[in-house]
Design a protein around this nucleic acid. Structure first.
Lengths: 347, 347
DNA sequence: TTCTAGCACTCGATAGGGATGAGTGCTAAT
DNA sequence: ATTAGCACTCATCCCTATCGAGTGCTAGAA
């Protein structure tokens, strides 16, 4: 990106416009920039530089007599090559840790609390994508007989998530038999991911002896069924949508409506977060870079959280493109690390 | 309420104002009322009646030269003594049933889908309060050893809900022992509600022989712990918040902000829905009747859903006080019955 | 060259001032 | 008891004038 911004002054002006815009939400004028930000040049000079930056597509003028506003490209350049990411202050870290006190008993609670933490510290919306079932490591399976031909299967992952399904079956099975099945399966499937588990089950079912062992074949059949239901699914926790309403640029009700609609249709956002799953570190999508309808006017800052080497899910912050990246990037980064740490500790 | 509205004409005018207001969202004038609604009287007469109704506190005039709008009291009178609640059409019923196709496998899914159904058929926000854990009937408990001194307890209710907790323990326990515990407990606690279960456990723990039976005492202790964590808690599903943004009276961003904030702080709404748990049939709270901060400008139409005699939870619709009660009341009523029916069938 | 001072110009935002029209209350006539 | 008529009120819309922040450009200084 260096090729874009030649010269120290250009970089300073770009930064100043962005900071000013992030602070006030209104286009920044040359006078204000020259006065603050100690450039020691006249407004006229700043104007010239601004004109250059506009030609490069980094700034943009809403109308002739207005100040300048950064474009998405401008923000991208700023984030990639100007912004120095600081560490979160010790006090902030402590306050974040504090928020989790006594709420990490269950995986679900931990992740919900995380979305709350992200939103309250960023003053934007916090999002957390739960681990995909398919890639969690299997810990245990249980069958519970609900009625004569309805049973519930319960899957527990090593990370402490629980997933249950109701199955209808043709012929009644006693709870004793179900217990036998689960004991058999628990032995067989230890330490596999659900995806591996699925394969393993298919393998086993092919083996000839299985055909003659009623217990085994039945057990395999049941667990097969249990896995059929959407193990690719993730859940999404969102908190602090209301914070978005506080941003002055969203006084436009119609635009706000569209963003909120996108929040309700969670699958769109899940797809978005899924994209940044694989990438390490903090991931930033500015405005239309996300390529998700109705999300053109917001930015997304995400990071994956892990357990050991395993990537579990993504968490992050959604806010207007004009949010305070310098504060929120370290926030997301730290939170992801903290969550990873807590998951490893607890589960 | 009869004492308020003397005379057929008064009632007709009140109804007309309300219908007009519900339809258009703007104050209704005397001319329009006289013209439609076949009253066969002049606008001047209507004005006189309106003046009377205003004195009674049923109507209200935003400003001198505006039409009339119903007050909360006016709506209350209308709902209690004028509105005739119709049945939902056969077509609507069919469409609602249709929405559930293949999504009632799990309790959770059923209830989430219900909030979706309520919001999409009402064009307002749909809410569903899940059954309280404490009053669900116990079906089964399982212990899973996660690490040497961390175990997970899983509770399954007869209605097919699953609840899990992570427990730290002092001395390691093997999975074999845990299995013994759960077998013992499952036998003892069959068919109790969790609340009864809690009592029963305390009783058992007092018995002298328990003190000398290590297995038993350990099992009781664990299940005790598992039940300590918030069994009074309910969850809340909300869907279709965005629909509220479509209502013209909410162009006021500030008010909208407050309502959305209330949605995020779910405990407030849970408290509200809890109130109407006990009452049978459809429950209606108009505006400030709810006595919940920030919810003064919305109405709430709810009904409890049940399984057998047991009241499980509440479901309903939240919308502006000016929503179409005649459509939504039967919708909520039917949905509650349908959900009850499905729960009984499936679980 | 590079920077700066000065100046004319643009254009959004704000405030004031009719004009419009929906709707009322009151009075007098039916 | 009902209605027609009329004066009156008040929100809404639209037009205009003013204001001011900010620009672009040009000519002169460093």
């Amino acid at each position: 990106m260096e090729e874009f911004v030649r010269g120290e002054r250009s970089r300073q002006v770009l930064e100043a416009v962005i900071l000013e815009y992030i602070r006030n939400g209104v286009p920044a004028g040359s006078r204000a920039i020259a006065k603050r930000y100690g450039l020691n040049v006249s407004p006229a000079t700043v104007r010239n530089v601004m004109a250059d930056l506009e030609e490069l597509g980094l700034l943009y003028q809403p109308h002739t007599s207005a100040g300048r506003v950064p474009t998405e490209l401008g923000l991208r350049v700023y984030i990639d090559s100007i912004l120095k990411i600081q560490q979160l202050s010790v006090a902030d870290r402590a306050r974040i840790r504090q928020s989790y006190r006594g709420r990490v008993e269950r995986m679900e609670g931990l992740l919900k609390e995380t979305s709350r933490v992200l939103s309250s510290f960023s003053k934007q919306a916090g999002v957390v994508l739960t681990p995909r079932l398919s890639q969690t490591v299997f810990k245990r399976i249980e069958f519970v007989r609900m009625r004569s031909n309805v049973i519930m299967t319960i899957l527990v992952s090593q990370a402490g998530t629980v997933h249950n399904t109701i199955l209808g079956i043709e012929e009644p099975i006693s709870q004793e038999d179900l217990d036998k099945y689960s004991r058999y399966l628990n032995d067989m499937l230890q330490d596999l991911t659900l995806l591996q588990m699925k394969e393993r089950l298919l393998e086993e079912m092919k083996k000839e002896k299985v055909l003659f062992d009623r217990l085994v074949s039945k057990a395999l059949e049941l667990s097969q069924k249990a896995l059929q239901t959407n193990i690719e699914e993730s859940e999404l926790y969102i908190d602090g949508r209301t914070n978005l309403l506080d941003n002055p640029e969203f006084t436009d009700v119609e635009q706000m409506r569209r963003i909120f609609a996108a929040f309700e249709e969670k699958s769109r956002i899940i797809g978005l977060l899924d994209k940044s799953l694989a990438a390490g570190g903090v991931n930033i999508l500015i405005g239309s870079e996300s390529e998700v309808r109705d999300m053109e006017s917001v930015s997304l800052i995400t990071s994956a959280y892990t357990s050991g080497d395993e990537i579990l899910g993504t968490l992050g912050v959604i806010g207007p493109t004009r949010m305070d990246y310098s504060r929120i990037i370290p926030l997301v980064d730290y939170t992801a690390k903290l969550v990873s740490e807590m998951i490893e500790d607890v589960f």
